[in-house]
Amino acid sequence: MTVFILRRLMQSFVVLFIMSLLVFVGVYAIGDPVEIFISPEADQIERERAIAALGLDKPLWAQYVYFLQGALSGDLGRSFRFSIPALELIMQRLPATLELTVAAMILSLAIGLPAGIYAGFRPESRLSKVIMAGSIFGFSLPSFWVGLMLILVFAVELGWLPSTGRGEVGTILGVTTSFATVSGIQHLILPALNLSFFNMALITRLTRAGVRENMLMDYVKYARAKGLGMRRVMFVHVFKNILIPIVTVVGIQMGQVLAFAVVTEQIFAWPGMGKLIIDSISNLDRPVIVAYLLVVVIMFIVINLVVDVLYSVLDPRVRLQDMKG
């Protein structure tokens, strides 16, 4: 187990190294680093000082070493707009995004799993057909459009829920979160619902396919032959088997949701790092962009690692040592 995790960590560092190289090439070689890292409002003296400080007068490989040194010590440059270190800015916004992501994931599981189990168990029933038709919409409707409709219906027409910003936050177990206050939860509902829509459809379809496939397996018939009730067959035997692909997908989707939070945050003016990156792109606040990319890559790597470990816990047939990783 430890060996496996260590090996995966090593691989992760390789991926991270490659990503840093790509980001570096993108920013330093393709783009103009002077333009990227030095505020357009800076005067000539500041500009030259900054060029020297960033080592831009040195050869490319030396620049990369500089960049890497900075990155390793957490220094990814300062935001032009906010004049604070880019990394610090990202970290300030991270909790709001994480909260939104987790809420969306929980929501999509809480609705997608039961819907998928039902649709897989009774594929011919009318409700199943409605569920499946709904899931097609969940797949094909662009997320920003769904967000607009949610605002139009629940905020503008019905006036039930707020449509912009994050509500009051409180602390639960030392974590600052929207879940602690009523206003926080109210503000969270629409964005989370919006962000969960695609995954809800995905989980519904995946669960349904898994249930249908597993229901045909011999072990299901055998479990019934033992006199088990349908409930136990479904929720213990079948469920434990479909859980494996679902956990994998949830893990992979975690990253997707994190990325798509960009859209949701923009629509609902949610103060997370997704909104920050869009604002930064519009304002050419490039140090923030670079910091964002590296942080997201690291999060991706961590998520993939967690999924692999979970996978091996759930499926007794998979031994971590045997995995090629």
Binding site: D218, Y219, H237, K240, D315
Partner: peptide, 10 residues
């Protein structure tokens, strides 16, 4: 087929 009848994850 005893390979198929016992649930692999229990």
């Amino acid at each position: 087929d005893p390979m198929m009848t016992l649930n692999p994850v229990l």
